[in-house]
Design a protein around this nucleic acid. Structure first.
Length: 295
DNA sequence: CGTTACCTGAAA
DNA sequence: TTTCAGGTAACG
């Protein structure tokens, strides 16, 4: 569920709540053992005990809860995970999968209906991360860096944006929104973008992610922040889950298709299938015909 | 490369 | 009852 803006919202809320707080215990609830990916909660509990949070960082959709013990708790929320900071004696919540007990009895809870989320304890955040592309809101995310990943690819541009090895942090909402702002058809081959389209796509990605962060993330279904409240970005989307509604810009009816197995929303008029090269109907048929034989 | 599996509840 | 879901890893 959470994409970069939702995870960044959690990071910003969590940091001031956690920094300086000490961990007194950690446990995983019965039936949720898989979230530790094979490790036992007792071994993690032993390593965490007494450690103090120093900073909270983010890489793509991953959160790093950094400790003064030079270790990092790396969390991925996947589809339905959330981190809740709860004061001592706060009521129990359904679907709580793991609990960090802090000094004074407060708790950091990992709540996750579908049990896809993960928690790792490592010495360096990178140790828990798969191959990830550039951070889209950093300076390293240039048009050239983006094109480096897209060039030569036949895959639909939508699928390429969801591949975390190309760019880190984009998910289904922001991929559709960025493609709408870019006037790009989601099924266009990733490697087919013209230079101007690449620049616009890079800028659109940054725009939609920055807007998402500014609105505290999007809450379409499950996403809630650290105290359980919702974001506002769902009120600002242009196409995502607006199937059969008129496009804000042109009034055409927004369509929903499946691309790479994911629901995909777009405006067929603003994001048309690009015209193929028009070799047949050239404006100067007599001169160009013999001169050029290649595409 | 696209498809399937992993889970579970809400909505259609 | 069936379909769907802000994600990814493991398939074929």
């Amino acid at each position: 569920m959470p994409e970069l803006p939702e995870v960044e919202t959690v990071r910003r809320q969590l940091e001031p709540l956690l920094v300086g707080r000490q961990i007194l215990g950690f446990r995983v609830m019965p039936g949720a053992e898989r979230l530790l990916r094979g490790r036992s909660d007792t071994s993690i509990d032993a390593q965490l005990n007494g450690a103090v949070f120093t900073t909270v960082t983010r890489r793509g959709k991953y959160l790093g809860l950094n400790l003064d013990s030079e270790q990092v708790v790396v969390v991925h929320l996947r589809m339905t995970g959330s981190l809740r900071f709860r004061a001592r004696d706060y009521e129990e919540e359904s679907f709580t999968r793991a609990i960090f007990t802090l000094d004074a009895g407060d708790q950091l809870r990992f709540v996750d209906v579908r049990k896809f989320g993960t928690i790792d304890l490592v010495d360096q955040m990178d140790d828990a991360l798969p191959e990830l592309g550039p951070e889209p809101l950093s300076d390293e995310f240039t048009t050239e860096a983006l094109w480096q990943e897209l060039r030569g690819r036949q895959q639909p541009i939508k699928s390429a944006l969801l591949d975390q090895r190309n760019v880190a942090g984009i998910g289904n909402i922001y991929a559709d929104e960025a493609l709408f702002l870019s006037h790009l058809n989601p099924e266009a081959p990733a490697g087919s973008l013209r230079p101007a389209e690449r620049r616009l796509l890079r800028q659109s990605i940054r725009q939609v992610l920055e807007d998402g962060v500014a609105h505290g993330g999007a809450s379409f279904r499950d996403y809630t922040d650290v105290d359980g409240s919702e974001g506002e970005q769902q009120y600002f989307v242009r196409v995502f889950r607006r199937t059969d509604e008129p496009c804000d810009d042109c009034g055409a009816i927004i369509r929903r298709i499946i691309v790479g197995g994911r629901a995909t929303h777009f405006c067929p008029k603003c994001q048309p299938v690009r015209q193929r090269g028009r070799l047949v109907k050239s404006t100067r048929p007599s001169r160009s015909a013999g001169a050029r034989s290649t595409l």
